[in-house]
Design a protein around this nucleic acid. Structure first.
Lengths: 340, 340
DNA sequence: CTGTTAGCGCCTTCAT
DNA sequence: ATGAAGGCGCTAACAG
């Protein structure tokens, strides 16, 4: 096949028109006579021609590509979100260019630089800490449209849920079920503004229920999380309920409880946060705060597409706080009379 | 900020050299005097300059981008694989452009077309059926390097595991544990060559153990899988072991068993396939065939990068059959004497 | 070792 | 309604 000559001129020559006309057929179909348009379209199809995206981008300064910066896909929360982003982007004629940062700020900055060089039209990102992010500074300096996902910050456009209210809500529900020793489990608190937000909500909820909050159970390393949690659950006094800052931790807590000989939820209620899809198929089904992960991605895309159309980047005022939902799974129940 | 003039000429002017020299500093650093190189590097950093990827692509016909075509990220298998792809690609200086197809062949073709127009240097894809795929024909016609992931087919370069052997292995192990009524559960068989491969292995294993294979339990719709499985488990004679063609189905089978009042593994052994990371943290820990999902992605990237370097696309001869591993999780045990 | 020159494929005024 | 011409930013020959 003469693959090398499959450019706009080849189509033009074959159709007996100029390159400009072919271009117009693809970009401004209304400005070309129906007969010519039909001819060019047919010729292009026969040859299997598609406009070269790089040349287009170079010329128009618009790539129809959105950059995506996420910590990892090994947490289903972000996989679900990326799926939402991918579908929404495709629906709007955009491609996506994702980069994974492993919760590392240096990699966040590097990813942003790379995506800037790729001429993306906008970026959706989840960063470790929006307050103090070199990556976000770059974006502002470049005046590139961007939205944060999951992060919440007054100075940036964000798609998020009110994690603080949700966490307080969880504690209130646990208290209403008779739990008094309610502990919170999280990963490295400093590495995630979401965890910090949820922790604030937890403290607020405990105060509102007039309960004393035991020390935060920080589980820094995923690999040893189950072990650390098992150890923790053997110390006295044991909590009757565990509020975990994410679903993966909740799942590991349930495992740790079993290894310790505790039944969930009878001996230990476990509540997660995130609403990963798989949680509902587990046994016991995971009790958790369900975030609209798919929609968080979708709204991020739509905000950016909208911004491109109107020509001005999204600002903090465009932030969206989406509703969450308490999923009353089987991993949580009223405290047993004996252990209360 | 004078964002518009941040091109190679701006750097050249500021450093008092020509654009060609700046270009060489970025592409052939050895061909420029150390002093000049240092000067240019410093100037570029001061200005925050990075070469424009589109222009580079247009000029060199190489984009340093790999296309990725996967069914969905809602199955952690593919999320884990994509994570592997993303990390490996980044390590080799490549970006990735993923597209999700929802197991739909029309979308597979569309994704390939879009990625071709984006001038990707190669593609990694998982398709419904490699034998009869319009998407793969396009790739061949375009002579673009590509590798299949998970798919196995003699006429294409593939990174896969021997699913048939693995499935036969599972059956042999279950038989050795005393199971005689071993049923297999899968999604729509026609929609996945992997499921078909595993089913062949199952049948082979049953024959080898001189056991009669009950009818395949096909669960077409994810939304109603638990319900369908619960119903199935109430019919007599019930199997003592279930071999599921993927881990998500295994997890749902375990749930269905519980809803039916059966204990896993005492009343029903459940074995999955895929080795999604979360399986090991479940209770009972999922017994499954562990595939190296991350490495499947990584090898795919490396095969493509290698091909670009040597200048010829990978062929069927470059296929890699990676080792799998039987993870002896808690969802499987010897058949109870009474139910055997 | 460095500068000059000529496009890569496309879109977009401007002219017809 | 269509064509001709220039340049987006970059790299690769070719000179010097």
């Amino acid at each position: 096949m003469s693959k090398e000559l499959l450019n706009i001129h080849a189509v033009a020559a074959r159709a007996g028109v100029s390159a400009a006309t072919v271009s117009r057929v693809f970009n401004l179909p209304d400005k070309v006579a129906p007969a010519t348009r039909e001819l060019v379209t047919r010729t292009a199809n026969e040859l299997g021609y598609q406009p070269n995206a790089s040349a287009r981008t170079l010329r128009t300064q618009r790539s129809r590509v959105l950059g995506v910066v996420l910590p990892t896909l090994l947490n289903p929360v972000f996989a679900e979100c990326l799926q939402g982003i991918a579908l929404a982007a495709a629906a709007h004629g955009y491609a996506i260019l994702p980069a994974m940062t492993s919760y590392d700020e240096a990699q966040e900055r590097q990813a942003v630089d790379q995506l800037l060089a790729a001429s993306v039209d906008g970026m959706i990102l989840t960063v470790s800490n929006p307050s103090d992010s070199a990556a976000l500074l770059r974006l502002r300096a470049a005046a590139l449209p961007y939205v944060l996902a999951y992060n919440a910050h007054p100075e940036h456009p964000c798609i998020s849920v009110d994690g603080e209210a949700a966490a307080a809500d969880v504690v209130a529900r646990l208290a209403a079920l008779g739990h008094r020793r309610i502990a919170m489990v999280s990963g490295t608190l400093a590495a995630s503004d979401r965890a910090q937000q949820r922790y604030r909500g937890y403290l607020r909820g405990m105060a509102a229920a007039a309960l004393q909050a035991p020390a935060l159970v920080e589980v820094p390393f995923v690999a040893t999380a189950v072990e650390a949690l098992s150890h923790y659950l053997q110390t006295q006094p044991r909590p009757t309920a565990l509020f975990c800052s994410n679903d993966l931790l909740a799942i590991r807590s349930i495992r740790a409880a079993h290894l310790t000989g505790l039944n969930v939820p009878q001996d230990l209620a476990v509540v997660g946060f995130d609403g990963i899809a798989i949680g509902q198929d587990l046994t016991p089904a995971l009790c958790t705060i369900v975030q609209p992960n798919h929609d968080i991605g979708r709204h991020g895309v739509e905000l950016l597409v909208h911004a491109v159309v109107r020509g001005s980047p999204p600002g903090p005022g465009d932030s969206l706080c989406l509703p969450y939902r308490f999923y009353s799974g089987e991993s949580c129940c009223a405290v047993a009379a004996a252990t209360a």
